[in-house]
């Protein structure tokens, strides 16, 4: 009897711990009261509306978007050719490259951030924006290489030869028959990279300067000073944005096949 109840109970508790806080945050964002509290006092959209009027959120949202989109594109531009080369040719240092490329996942983000600050921003005068961009690109690169490699592994190499025999150059064959066939993988990598970058805290922690900080860091800062439900409102908005993106990706691309 106890054993039969054990599994569903564990499951229930896990769901409660994972989803419960999220539901509380969502509920709190519709509060009509002045402070972040649960149960919420009344119901209103005032905090949701307020989020859009806070200047620093607007700015840091812009920075985060730029990093997420720009960093992911840069990671793909580096990662696609690298994955292609590793999958199609026997390169002498393929294993080393694979290892180096996955370093940013292994090394704690806070160390990456600190290292960039200590050795590039401070002594060389690299701009914080550039440092953030480099850090996010490096962080996304492993995901890009993995996801793109997986879809390349499912693609026969002989279709490129078929394209060449039919008159296409090698490079043309890459664009005409390789890229179109791995576009699902590329889009998946893009979404994964986007979400990873957007939610990134540790790497970005040390890398903030006047007017340049990512949204999660900005939210941390805001919470230290102001304790109103707008932070809950923003969190809910971001969570629904992420869920929406992943849901759409799964619906239209079969996202989970590649990750």
């Amino acid at each position: 009897m106890i054993r039969r109840l054990f599994t569903p109970l564990t499951l229930f508790l896990m769901m409660l711990f994972l989803i419960g806080p999220f539901l509380i945050i969502v509920a709190a964002s519709f509060s009509a009261g002045e402070t972040l509290a649960f149960p919420p006092q009344g119901f209103s959209f005032r905090w949701i509306i307020k989020v859009f009027t806070i200047e620093s959120f607007r700015q840091s949202f812009g920075v985060s978007m730029f990093l997420a989109i720009g960093g992911t594109l840069a990671a793909l531009i580096l990662g696609i050719p690298a994955s292609y080369a590793m999958s199609r040719y026997r390169l002498p240092f393929a294993e080393t490259v694979r290892f180096l490329v996955s370093m940013p996942i292994i090394v704690p983000g806070i160390i990456v951030g600190l290292a960039l600050l200590r050795y590039f921003v401070i002594p060389v005068g690299m701009s914080v924006t550039l440092a953030l961009f480099v850090a996010h690109t490096a962080l996304i690169l492993p995901y890009a290489v993995r996801v793109v490699s997986a879809s390349l592994a499912n693609l026969r190499a002989d279709i490129e030869e078929a394209a060449v025999i039919l008159g296409s150059s090698r490079l043309g064959a890459f664009f005409r028959v390789v890229l179109p066939n791995i576009r699902g993988g590329i889009l998946s990598a893009f979404i994964l990279g986007f979400v990873t970058s957007f939610n990134q805290v540790p790497v970005s922690l040390f890398l903030s300067g006047p007017g340049v900080r990512t949204l999660p860091i900005d939210m941390l800062g805001y919470m230290e000073n102001v304790f109103d439900p707008s932070i809950a409102a923003l969190s809910s908005l971001l969570a629904f944005l992420s869920i929406g993106i992943v849901f759409a990706a799964e619906r239209f691309l079969g996202f989970s096949r590649y990750v």
């Binding site: 002989d158 030869e161 078929a162 394209a163 025999i165 296409s168 150059s169 028959v177 066939n181």
Partner: peptide
């Protein structure tokens, strides 16, 4: 790509993202 020699692969090697028409049109 300059030899003008046709080769039908044992695996057929059709382009999976294209229709039959576009495969032949390539």
């Amino acid at each position: 790509n300059k030899r003008e020699i046709g080769l039908v692969f044992q695996s057929y090697a059709l382009f999976p993202h294209l229709t039959v028409f576009e495969n032949v049109a390539f």
